[in-house]
């Protein structure tokens, strides 16, 4: 879409990017509207809000439940609203993804640069990437209790393993290409890591952070569902037990909007950080 040849320093690319973004935005709105209309039609066909509440009812429920969800208060004996539940989950997911990303980048770069560490610990770490993470939950509860940080542990572990291997693979793939060149220019090992390996691996790292972020909501919610004190997982569990489907949908929809906003922010940040990338 963009010209690869000499058209440097112009203002046209900026305008073109803006136009592209607005076209993408229009598509997105059209797609979202289609899904909402389909949902509304389906809800009318079902005709039973306990089975499938209509979109309007769910949006109204978000508003009504903003400060407290009656069905939840009835069980918890304390107010827990959509706002509080979603922000609890969102903060945990974001803190978890952030911690996991930092750990993953560090581990990935160590694995890529140090052959002995790689030979010794790549195998065990690889096992962790394919382990059903849910089995960690009882141990996390046992070892760390139900603190906030313990609740984010699944997200941390998942992000860390995903990012570790994405970073490691990308770093190794570019290392052969660029590391010799950097060495000829006189760069030290640390300089090569900072100026060459890390930026070269960044696009792959960011792509995997987004995957971790998307699936992180589920990991966080299940941790809350199976033994948390707050968050959307707790709300899902309580509302489902009482067949309060509209309330359940409300909290999930609110979370989804936040998740999309967070994802858009991360994608935008990634696009700025890797604006040098070839198409």
């Amino acid at each position: 879409m963009s010209t690869t040849a000499a058209s440097a320093g112009g203002t046209a690319p900026g305008r073109r990017a803006l136009r592209r973004a607005s076209v993408t935005g229009a598509y997105a709105i059209a797609g979202a509207l289609t899904v909402i209309v389909a949902w509304a039609l389906l809800a009318r066909a079902v005709g039973n809000p306990t089975q499938l509440p209509a979109p309007g009812a769910v949006i109204a429920a978000i508003q009504a439940n903003w400060h407290t969800i009656p069905a939840v208060q009835y069980v918890l004996f304390r107010p827990l609203g959509v706002a509080a539940a979603v922000s609890y989950t969102a903060v945990n997911v974001m803190v978890g993804v952030a911690l996991g990303t930092v750990l993953g980048i560090v581990l990935g770069l160590i694995l890529a640069r140090n052959r002995l560490v790689r030979e010794l610990f790549e195998g065990p770490l690889l096992l962790l990437t394919t382990t059903p993470l849910l089995i960690l939950l009882p141990f996390i509860t046992l070892w760390f209790g139900t603190d906030r940080i313990a609740q984010s542990m699944l997200v941390i572990v998942f992000t860390m393993t995903t990012v570790t291997f994405a970073t490691k693979n990308a770093a190794i793939a570019v290392a052969g290409h660029y590391a010799n060149y950097a060495a000829c220019l006189g760069a030290s090992a640390a300089q090569t890591l900072r100026d060459v390996v890390f930026p070269a691996a960044l696009p792959a790292t960011i792509a995997n952070v987004r995957v971790a972020l998307a699936l992180g909501w589920g990991l966080q919610a299940v941790a809350e569902l199976l033994g948390g004190r707050s968050g959307i997982g707790r709300v899902i569990e309580i509302t489902a037990r009482q067949q309060a489907t509209t309330d359940l949908f409300a909290v999930v929809l609110a979370m989804l909007v936040v998740a999309l906003a967070v994802d858009t922010a991360v994608a935008g940040l990634g696009a700025v950080l890797t604006r040098w990338k070839e198409d």
């Binding site: 997105a28 919610a221 809350e224």
Partner: peptide, 24 residues
């Protein structure tokens, strides 16, 4: 292209925690 966003949103559903909904 229009379905890209709903597809992305689908993936962000708290999937692991949605089992109770299917119970309903």
């Amino acid at each position: 292209r229009a379905f890209m966003l709903p597809a992305q949103a689908f993936r962000m559903l708290p999937l692991l925690a949605l089992a109770p909904l299917f119970g309903i």
